[in-house]
């Protein structure tokens, strides 16, 4: 369903317009009764954020200072958005337990697969949104006494001065791109119950206000 739409929008964002696009998926089988889940606690997993500078020669060079600032904004914005909704949260920063580290890596792998499947669908998977991290997530539930975990993954790049100058000179888009996803995982079953993708050719996670706008897009439609 999203296949053509997302591809077209991706192409459009890359090629022409300055736009932000999000698309949401909700678990297909046994949908969650969100009204009943309202009092539940959500674990905010340390967001995986990486900001890079897109050099003149199209190399994405990671920037530690931008990443530090951007990650700080994303973290604070996610926490305050959930707080504003009246959702009880707890956070997991600097995870060091080997099993929990594996779960974070597993989520990254599953999240990438969901992303990929939205563009190039596996023939047998189709649109059936039944992704899961498996029952191993019980470790997170027990450790943090939480019912759901919210994972956030964002990559953003910004053109270097020389690259920007060339783009202005030739009146072409800079090609820098913000991509990310957020997912809500039921810690009782491991199921990814809600997933949202973000792709945007604008936005700036290095700035507090713009970062808040990006996070708002990323959590758009969070059913809690």
């Amino acid at each position: 369903m999203h296949y053509g739409k997302l591809l077209a929008l991706t192409a459009l964002c890359v090629g022409l317009c300055a736009c932000a696009h999000t698309s949401t998926d909700v678990a297909a089988s046994a949908p969650v009764n969100w009204t009943a889940e309202r009092g539940k606690k959500v674990l905010l997993v340390d967001p995986d954020v990486e900001l890079s500078e897109l050099t003149f020669g199209d190399v994405a060079e990671p920037r530690a200072d931008w990443t530090q600032a951007g990650k700080g904004f994303v973290k604070a914005d996610v926490a305050s958005m959930l707080q504003a909704k009246g959702i009880a949260t707890t956070s997991a920063d600097n995870i060091t337990d080997p099993h929990e580290v594996q779960l974070v890596k597993l989520h990254a792998a599953v999240g990438q697969s969901i992303q990929q499947n939205s563009v190039l669908q596996l023939p047998t998977k189709k649109n059936n949104f039944d992704w899961t991290l498996g029952p191993g997530v019980a470790a997170l539930r027990d450790h943090y006494q939480a019912d759901y975990a919210l994972f956030v993954y964002v990559r953003d790049s910004y053109s270097s001065g020389s690259r920007m100058a060339l783009a202005v000179l030739t009146m072409s888009p800079t090609g820098a791109m913000q991509t990310g996803f957020a997912s809500l995982v039921d810690l009782r079953t491991g199921r990814v119950v809600w997933f949202n993708r973000l792709i945007s050719s604008t936005g700036n996670l290095r700035e507090e206000k713009q970062a808040a706008a990006s996070v708002k897009n990323l959590l758009d439609g969070l059913p809690l």
Partner: peptide, 15 residues
């Protein structure tokens, strides 16, 4: 003009 604003998915990630 050519090659500018290239698709960032084609950009090389140092990582």
């Amino acid at each position: 003009g050519a090659g500018v604003g290239a698709d960032p998915r084609g950009a090389m990630s140092l990582g």
